[in-house]
Computed example of a mutant assay.
Amino acid sequence: MKVVVIGGTGLIGSKLVGKLGEHGHEAVAAAPNTGVNTLTGEGLAEVLEGASVVVDVSNSPSFADDAVMDFFRTSTTNLLKAGSEAGVTHHVALSVVGTDRLQESGYFRAKQAQEELIQASGIPYSIVHATQFFEFMKGIADMSTEGDTVRLAPVKIQPIYSDDVAAAVGRTAVGSPVNGVVEVAGPDVFQLDELIRGALAAKGDPRTVVTDPKAPYSGAQVQENTLVPGPDAHIAETRFADWRAQQK
């Protein structure tokens, strides 16, 4: 089957294109650098011709509140319209575990808007909620840094390897639409502040991690279980310690 991957040249998209190709599917990477722009609509009709499935793993180039909302609203609206006109029968999007619980954050408000547009589109769909990627531990630290101090709440987090995310999205894409949300997470639950403290130390990063129960996460207040999935989540196999050992 032909599967068009929006954001197909990025971290998850490139892995997904490869995995789908290995399983005999015609996987097409669609991104601005391949001539497809969901913000302007450029190239959408052409790339979606003959596609059964479209998978959106794209992300906003800016996380500023207005910019990220504009990105997800505009790109998703254009993609859904083009998909409907092309006869796409399954729309898949990658989103984030806890999106509906993080609505103080402009980024997560934009992701929620994306999900609501998909749900209201009338196109059969599946939304994959993944926990934070192993590769983004430094990014969590960066967004929580003031000077040389990283302030993080002592809440649970259950990160996942990007390869496992791509595999989960791939399985969902070639399966039947669930018309709902599928959650995926890594096998280990950590305390956020302790995880980032250890990750920075392993990289020789001199920043100090301070445990602060009131520290926001991406601009939103978090409770103990805000960032972890529910009991029905698919649990991936790759452990954080094993992944980290391979990075050295």
Rank of each mutant, 00 (worst) to 15 (best):
M1T: 09
M1P: 04
K2R: 15
K2Y: 07
V5A: 03
G8Y: 05
L11A: 08
S14I: 09
K15M: 13
L16D: 04
H25K: 12
H25N: 10
E26K: 14
A27P: 03
A29W: 03
A29D: 11
A30W: 03
A31L: 03
G35Q: 06
G35V: 13
L39R: 12
L39C: 06
T40Y: 00
G41M: 06
L44M: 09
V47I: 14
V47M: 01
V47Q: 01
L48R: 04
E49R: 15
S52Q: 15
V53I: 12
V54A: 00
D56V: 13
N59Q: 12
N59H: 15
S62P: 04
F63R: 13
A64I: 15
V68S: 07
M69L: 15
M69R: 14
F72E: 02
R73S: 14
R73N: 11
T74L: 06
T74G: 03
S75Q: 11
T77W: 02
S84H: 11
H90K: 08
V92F: 01
L94R: 12
G98W: 01
T99A: 14
T99P: 03
R101I: 10
S105E: 13
G106M: 04
F108Q: 05
A110Q: 09
A110P: 14
A113V: 04
E116G: 11
I118R: 08
Q119F: 13
S121Q: 03
G122I: 10
S126H: 05
I127M: 02
V128I: 15
V128W: 09
H129Q: 13
Q132V: 10
E135S: 15
E135W: 06
F136V: 10
A141H: 05
D142R: 04
E146L: 07
T149I: 14
A153Q: 00
V155Q: 02
V155T: 08
I157A: 04
S162M: 06
D163T: 14
A166R: 05
A167G: 05
R171M: 11
A173H: 04
P177C: 06
P177G: 05
N179H: 02
N179F: 12
A185L: 06
A185W: 09
G186F: 00
L192I: 10
D193W: 08
L195Q: 01
R197G: 07
L200Y: 00
D205G: 01
K214N: 14
A215N: 09
Q223R: 13
Q223N: 12
E224G: 03
L227G: 01
P229N: 07
D232G: 07
H234D: 09
E237G: 12
R239W: 13
A241S: 12
A241I: 09
D242N: 08
D242V: 13
W243N: 07
